[in-house]
Measured scan of single mutants.
Amino acid sequence: MLDDRARMEAAKKEKVEQILAEFQLQEEDLKKVMRRMQKEMDRGLRLETHEEASVKMLPTYVRSTPEGSEVGDFLSLDLGGTNFRVMLVKVGEGEEGQWSVKTKHQMYSIPEDAMTGTAEMLFDYISECISDFLDKHQMKHKKLPLGFTFSFPVRHEDIDKGILLNWTKGFKASGAEGNNVVGLLRDAIKRRGDFEMDVVAMVNDTVATMISCYYEDHQCEVGMIVGTGCNACYMEEMQNVELVEGDEGRMCVNTEWGAFGDSGELDEFLLEYDRLVDESSANPGQQLYEKLIGGKYMGELVRLVLLRLVDENLLFHGEASEQLRTRGAFETRFVSQVESDTGDRKQIYNILSTLGLRPSTTDCDIVRRACESVSTRAAHMCSAGLAGVINRMRESRSEDVMRITVGVDGSVYKLHPSFKERFHASVRRLTPSCEITFIESEEGSGRGAALVSAVACKKACMLGQ
């Protein structure tokens, strides 16, 4: 009897593995994704193909990295998701002549009506938060230079001027797309009239992360975010950046690689679950690469896999709870928690219980395998993109072996128990001629924006502006 049951459990697990095998990517698959990513990057950089390229390769006008001589107080704003952060950054000489960066910050959550109302409502709310922060720190009387981390696709015309191309991540505030974001912020500050600010720089969160990590390690020339969304930036040779005049030196390019796949480059790798996630998203047909990796989508992918296993009578005796059938019910943090389970399955059992399920031991094991399959594919897909960037940098610099540091931020990278190990191992397999160091950014977005502002202020002083 026991043997029969054991055989049935083994057969069930084997069927589960057959279904989950769809998520496995072979090294040849990853090399294919990497080569296609490089081709799209090239198209994004070139003037004649930029418009139709899915990977936009947006110039950021960040050319210099901090040298350690900029000092002063800077205000930093960070808008990239449902939370908005205001930070005071003091850049100065530390002990023994070292450079020191001290920060104080406060988080504000953005109400739904500000995210989806008008641009005026959104930026009025942001300036209200700045006003509140300055009151708390008794700094209303000071006109501070301000660095703005704005983590949406922007076409820069200068370091302090950028046109919002399109909202992502659930934002829909009308009247912002096609307009200068810094102008919208300046107008809102003017409307309030109770404080003055000098907006000197606007950067993407990947750029802010790279600059913040450069402060720790001067070989950091790539910034990457794996959180709600997924994106990367890197220092490109100016001669390859056709959208900006000049051939000397390097400029940081914001790849906006989340949109890779929007022209069909990933079609052969998309599964039924991916198509369902895409169809029910706020932007169907867009940001397809990001939807395979980002935390906004990972939990939902797992939920759809679990429903398939229920329908195949391989999980929960073929019956799903009402909660499990509800879109968004299986949160991405559950994926991390399930994979963090120590082996007694308590954590998995508790999560499934909150979803109205009474799982068996085998159910718990199957749910864990589903989570591992989805998150491992995410790590491997992400590795193909980064390997594409790094191999490109090595080739354009004609280096036999390139040493490089990548600064990384984002909740999936930082909080998932195995993502970074799987990701690092896969990147290294795909970049055999590179020695890569990964560092995690601390308060990256805010500190990085302030350091970019410090560079901009120093330049302005040198130019006598």
Rank of each mutant, 00 (worst) to 15 (best):
Y214A: 15
V62G: 03
V401M: 13
Q286R: 14
G464D: 15
M202R: 06
I211P: 01
C252G: 03
G448S: 09
D274G: 01
T49I: 04
Y413N: 03
M202C: 06
Q38C: 10
S398V: 11
G388T: 08
T376I: 11
E312H: 15
S54Q: 07
F74K: 05
M202D: 08
V182L: 09
L75M: 09
E27S: 03
F423T: 04
E395W: 08
R428G: 13
N179K: 13
C461A: 15
D278P: 01
R394A: 10
R429H: 13
T116G: 13
L184G: 06
A114H: 15
G249Q: 01
A282F: 15
K142P: 05
V455E: 07
E279Y: 09
A10G: 15
L144K: 00
F23M: 06
G446Q: 15
Y214F: 04
L134N: 07
V452E: 03
E120Q: 01
K459C: 05
C129L: 02
M107K: 15
R308E: 07
H317L: 09
C461S: 09
I366E: 03
I390M: 10
R397K: 11
E95A: 09
G92H: 06
A329I: 14
T168H: 11
R429P: 07
E17N: 10
A188N: 02
T362I: 03
T206V: 12
F260C: 02
S445V: 15
S280K: 13
Y273I: 03
G229I: 06
L134K: 03
N179E: 11
W167S: 15
M41V: 05
E268D: 11
G285H: 03
K31I: 15
G264W: 01
K104Q: 13
M210P: 03
L386Y: 04
S336E: 11
N179W: 14
G258M: 06
L75R: 02
K161P: 04
P359F: 02
L30W: 02
K32H: 05
V101F: 06
L315I: 11
R308I: 03
T149N: 15
V62T: 01
D4V: 03
D278W: 01
V91F: 12
E27H: 14
Y413P: 02
G328Y: 09
V71K: 04
T82E: 07
I351H: 01
E112Q: 09
P145W: 10
L304Y: 11
L309T: 02
Y61K: 04
S54K: 14
H380N: 13
K291Q: 07
Q138N: 11
I348P: 03
G162W: 04
M115A: 14
M107R: 13
R191K: 12
Q239K: 11
A384M: 04
Q138S: 10
I189V: 14
H218M: 06
E216Q: 05
G80K: 15
D73N: 06
G261M: 09
L306D: 00
E435Y: 05
Y214G: 13
S212T: 03
Q239S: 06
V71Q: 15
K291C: 01
G464E: 07
I130L: 09
E272G: 07
K31G: 07
G318V: 06
E67P: 02
D363S: 02
G193Y: 01
F74W: 03
T60R: 01
D274P: 02
I436P: 03
G246P: 04
V367T: 10
A379F: 04
K172L: 14
A208P: 04
R155F: 14
L271A: 05
V338N: 00
V408T: 10
F152N: 15
E14V: 12
M298S: 03
F269P: 00
I225V: 07
H50L: 04
R5K: 06
L144R: 05
V338G: 04
M197N: 04
K102I: 13
D132A: 11
E268V: 10
M202V: 14
E312G: 12
M87D: 04
G294M: 08
G94D: 07
S433G: 15
E319D: 15
L288G: 13
E300P: 01
A208L: 03
R327H: 10
L79T: 04
L184K: 03
N179R: 13
F316H: 15
F195D: 12
A6R: 10
K169L: 08
V101A: 04
G318S: 09
A282H: 02
K459I: 04
M121E: 10
F334P: 01
L2S: 14
L304N: 10
M235A: 01
E9T: 11
D400T: 03
S281Y: 01
M462A: 15
S398N: 11
W257Y: 01
I390H: 01
R428T: 13
Q26M: 03
G117K: 03
S453V: 14
W257D: 03
T332L: 06
H137A: 09
E268Y: 05
S212A: 05
K414H: 04
L20W: 15
Q239P: 08
Y289G: 09
S54I: 05
S336T: 15
E442C: 15
T168K: 06
E395C: 10
D158T: 08
G446Y: 10
S127C: 14
K56Q: 12
R46P: 00
I126E: 00
L243S: 07
E177C: 15
E443R: 02
D400V: 09
D29G: 03
L2E: 13
S383T: 03
K190E: 07
E290P: 09
D124Q: 06
L30R: 12
R377K: 01
V310Y: 12
R186I: 04
D363A: 03
E28M: 14
K32F: 07
K172A: 14
H141R: 10
T168A: 12
T209S: 04
E312W: 07
E17D: 04
F133A: 03
M8Y: 14
N204S: 10
F123E: 04
V91P: 03
L47A: 03
E322P: 06
C461H: 03
L352V: 09
R303T: 01
V222Y: 01
T255M: 15
V101K: 10
M139P: 05
G294V: 06
G80H: 10
Y215R: 05
A188S: 09
A259M: 13
E14D: 13
K190H: 08
F419M: 01
T431R: 00
L301T: 07
F330N: 00
M139T: 09
C364P: 01
K142S: 10
E221S: 08
R333W: 12
S398I: 09
L304Q: 14
G285K: 10
F334W: 14
D135W: 03
D194C: 13
R377M: 00
S321W: 04
M462G: 12
L451R: 14
V55R: 01
V310Q: 11
E22A: 07
L304R: 08
L451D: 06
R7V: 14
T206R: 02
S54W: 05
I293K: 00
G147S: 10
D158P: 15
V338S: 06
R422A: 12
V310C: 04
I163R: 14
R428M: 09
L309Q: 02
V55E: 00
A370V: 09
G193W: 03
L307R: 11
F423Q: 03
E319K: 06
P59M: 03
E265P: 02
G175N: 07
V91W: 04
S174V: 11
N391D: 14
I126Q: 01
Y289A: 02
A454G: 10
V182C: 15
E157P: 15
V389T: 05
S360R: 02
S373E: 14
K346W: 05
P417K: 13
L415M: 12
D247S: 07
S151G: 15
G92R: 08
L276F: 12
L30E: 11
G117R: 03
F269Q: 12
E440P: 10
G328R: 10
V16R: 04
I439P: 00
E221I: 05
S398Y: 05
S263Q: 11
E51Y: 02
V253M: 13
K32Y: 01
I130H: 00
T60F: 04
E319C: 14
A460T: 13
D262W: 08
A176S: 11
L276A: 04
R303S: 01
P284C: 15
Q347Y: 13
R250L: 12
I404F: 03
M235R: 01
A173N: 12
A53K: 03
R429V: 09
E95Q: 06
Q98V: 11
L307V: 10
D4I: 03
W257F: 13
G162S: 11
L25C: 06
T118Y: 04
E157F: 14
V277S: 05
D205G: 01
C457D: 15
G68V: 10
V55L: 10
L415V: 06
R186G: 10
V200L: 09
D187H: 06
V55I: 04
I19V: 14
